[in-house]
């Protein structure tokens, strides 16, 4: 027999701010995303949430699940007992557009403010430079690469520190990678821009964000590292 659970969606835009959906748990491989899809198809076609790849690669589906930021497509519901309540809310610290959908522009703006993209030294070079992966810088870049810009860490930081005064760990993580990147021409200027960032000062309290990052980037260690480079 199919087991049902309660999907409790915090809806910021509609009259009642919370709605419970009684949903079956898929027999294999159920994710929070599957519950949301079921609720929208069979119970409420107006329920809004984001997803695209469904395999943890696009970072579109980050929400707050039982108080913690996570990707809906990677959060298993296989262990939930019948009748359990699963509370899903939009990411903290960003304006809500509708239901679970937040306005990501302020998050993307942190990358623009940080100028978090390569400013190339040799944009027209017609070969692939030789860069041994074992070098100290490259090895560190490698550990910090792979961000899917899901916003989970930045939302958690605004929960833990308050949103003011920080670009958030995701943009700062990219700044660190670029500071280590021999192909980049803007290292110091970019570092100067982020020097006063609150997350750099408060990195000691940000340990919990490491566990939230769906791709396992050591974010708090990165903030510490970045601080030593200012």
């Amino acid at each position: 027999m199919t087991r049902h659970v309660i999907l409790r969606v915090k809806r910021a835009n509609v009259a009642s701010t919370q709605r419970d959906f009684d949903v079956p748990v898929p027999t294999v491989a159920g994710r929070v995303l599957d519950l949301l899809l079921y609720a929208r198809e069979y119970l409420d076609p107006t329920l809004e949430f984001r997803y695209a790849c469904r395999v943890g690669m696009c970072g579109s589906c980050a929400v707050t699940i039982n108080g913690r930021e996570a990707l809906a497509c990677e959060s298993s519901v296989a262990e939930l007992p019948a009748g359990a309540v699963l509370e899903v809310a939009p990411l903290a610290g960003l304006p809500v557009r509708r239901d679970l959908v937040v306005d990501l522009d302020p998050f993307l703006a942190t990358f623009i403010h940080a100028e978090a993209g390569l400013k190339p030294r040799q944009p027209r070079l017609r070969e692939v430079p030789v860069i041994p992966p074992g070098g100290a810088e490259r090895a560190l870049i490698e550990r910090h690469n792979g961000c899917v810009t899901c916003g989970a860490c930045t939302a958690a930081t605004s929960r833990l520190l308050g949103a003011a005064g920080t670009l958030g760990p995701a943009a700062l993580n990219r700044v660190l990678m670029l500071a280590l990147d021999e192909r980049d021409a803007k290292g110091h200027e970019r570092l100067a821009r982020v020097a006063g960032d609150a997350a750099l000062a408060g990195h000691d309290t940000l340990g919990p964000i490491d566990e939230l990052c769906p791709v396992g980037i050591p974010l708090s260690a990165g903030l510490r590292e970045l601080r030593t480079r200012l």
Partner: peptide, 20 residues
């Protein structure tokens, strides 16, 4: 590939000697 590497900053996997 040259542009993705040198102008846009992609990190592609390298051999131990640093070649792509």
């Amino acid at each position: 590939i040259f542009e993705l590497e040198n102008a846009y900053g992609c990190y592609f996997d390298r051999n131990p000697n640093g070649t792509i």
